[in-house]
């Protein structure tokens, strides 16, 4: 567990943050889509099949809201990564539970992102000041700050969420009646059909 918290999880959180930067900041090549992040994180954490399953479900659930203007739908990369890490990590949370928890964390990451976006407004003032005084904007420094703060915030968010929620959910599951798990499992089995129904509706509009 300690190697997981001190080496494995920090490395995985940093990798997720780098991939997640594609969502808004760099490229938009969709390497941050859950269909990519899920299997990749699953493979790194030792369970690529679980990663693919969770990634596919998160992908479809996150397609329901479009990232237009200042709208921030649940962050698919964070949702997929945290769901996979909660299930494939040492806590071994059942995917039936890690899926909704991951999606909730993806939505919660929006709060972090909103703060970073508000903070970034100050970078416009810096750029303006640089244009007035020097005639050039120090882009490398500016991008390093803009992207660096975002990467650090996302990596920290993923690390904290998995490190805190993994053991907490694990303990909570032992308190709950044993019959709850089969109930959750039934819904998990139905999840692919729920997702595909939603995808069909999305494309038939």
């Amino acid at each position: 567990m300690s190697a997981w918290l001190s080496v494995g999880l920090p490395a995985l959180s940093a990798s997720v943050a780098v991939l997640e930067a594609d969502t808004v900041l760099v490229g938009q090549w969709l390497v941050s889509r859950p269909l990519v992040v899920g299997p990749l994180v699953g493979w790194l954490a030792g369970d690529p099949v679980l990663g693919a399953g969770l990634g596919a479900l998160v992908e479809v659930f996150c397609l329901e809201e479009l990232p237009v203007g200042s709208v921030m739908p649940p962050n698919g990369a964070v949702a997929a990564a945290t769901a996979v890490l909660l299930s494939a990590g040492p806590s071994g949370i059942p995917p039936a539970l890690s899926l909704p928890v991951g999606l909730a964390l993806g939505a919660l990451h929006g709060r972090v992102e909103a703060r970073v976006r508000s903070w970034r407004a100050a970078l416009t003032a810096r750029a303006l000041e640089a244009v007035v005084t020097e005639g050039v904007v120090p882009w490398r420094r500016l991008w390093a700050r803009s992207v660096g703060v975002h990467l650090a915030a996302t990596a920290l968010f993923v690390y904290a969420a998995v490190a805190l929620l993994g053991p907490t959910l694990d303990r909570a599951l032992t308190w709950l009646p044993g019959s709850v798990s089969p109930g959750l499992e039934r819904v998990w089995q139905a999840a692919p059909f729920l997702a595909l129904g939603s995808l069909l509706q999305r494309l038939s509009r």
């Binding site: 808004v24 900041l25 490229g27 976006r117």
Partner: peptide, 9 residues
């Protein structure tokens, strides 16, 4: 590719 690297409100 970096058009949104400084996205702010």
């Amino acid at each position: 590719m970096l058009i949104q690297a400084g996205w702010n409100f």
